[in-house]
Write a protein that binds this DNA or RNA. Structure first.
Lengths: 189, 189
DNA sequence: GTCTATATAGCGATAGAC
DNA sequence: GTCTATCGCTATATAGAC
């Protein structure tokens, strides 16, 4: 059992362990046995909490969605729309080392799940959707008519930089791109 | 056997089939049997050409690297650096439908392989590295001192937009972002 | 060189004792 | 509610006939 999984219910420990393993080594490489071991739960017992492996994946997505919404709500207390977007993108620079090692938790999960099921609009799309809509709202509040386009560009830069930082194992790629986005925001009308 | 795999040596057919399957459903979901069937080669026979599955993956990476280099060389005949970068990014808008369906072939492959092995600088990193260096050279030729930073931003926008287009199954996200990059290039000093 | 048959191992999932 | 034992399947990889 890892430090991050002590003192919770078994179900929560399983979800947290799965989320960590999915981020570190991918969904497909992760087995029920690994999740159970990390959560200090007997292997067969996992099926009491999750009928199938897919149900566990869904629970991890819901877990991430909760984190995302919590972060966005915290940011909403900031005074200006610019400060809210800055606070958002800074989440990726403060976790740049982790991003360089394992990719963006949202982006790499979406990328992998996109290939797993053939759904038109999969459940995990909401993760990036929430973030994208948040950025759009802030830019619209700034009076930008092209808020959606600018939001797409901004999130693309974040997600693309995360991919490059991960591929080249170089956290400074992530940090530098965030800095450039913030400079661009400063100069925005 | 698919149309794209007729009239080649078996080894080449296997590599091409594997590349298509990796793009469509990911590396991990793809089995030797699937690759063999698509290439019209008996399943067990694959091991005559590739001792392990990993060796097949390496061959697919080398195949993509060949395609990338071929594309970049073709672009080099264009007169101006701006035209060369434009021609490059247009590769993603002309294949926007495929990108929306399966992601960027380079990006999604890198993303997945980043999680599979723990290598510091993996073989597949060269795919994005070649593209990044190409963009940087063009921007430097334009006299930009910040050519590397601008190249990272440009490739990030491409790769991030590909992820969003794939996640939301919306090819216009990819096409629109390419258009915005081209407009940005036009306004560049 | 080509192909079939199969060894071996690890997976998700289940049955049922406690 | 909790846990063990195990089923059934599918994967990579190999051995060896042709």
């Amino acid at each position: 059992m890892t430090d991050s999984t002590v003192g919770r219910g078994k179900r929560d420990r399983l979800i947290l362990s799965a989320a960590e393993l999915f981020h570190a080594q991918g969904v497909q490489k992760t087995t029920i046995a690994q999740v159970a071991e990390r959560a200090d739960v007997p292997a067969g017992n996992v099926y009491y909490y999750f009928k199938t492996f897919e149900e566990l994946v869904d629970a991890v997505i819901a877990h991430h969605l909760g984190l995302v919404r919590h972060n966005l709500e915290r940011l909403s207390s900031r005074r200006s729309p610019k400060a809210r977007v800055k606070g958002l993108v800074e989440l990726w620079s403060t976790s740049a080392d982790l991003v360089a090692e394992n990719g963006c938790p949202l982006g790499s999960l979406s990328s992998e799940l996109n290939k797993l099921h053939d759904l038109e609009t999969p459940h995990e799309a909401e993760l990036l959707s929430e973030v994208l809509d948040f950025i759009e709202r802030q830019l619209r509040e700034l009076g930008r008519r092209d808020a959606r386009a600018l939001a797409v560009t901004t999130l693309s830069r974040i997600q693309g930089a995360a991919l490059l930082a991960n591929t080249f194992s170089d956290a400074s790629i992530m940090r530098d791109e965030v800095r450039r986005i913030e400079r661009w925001l400063d100069e925005l009308a």
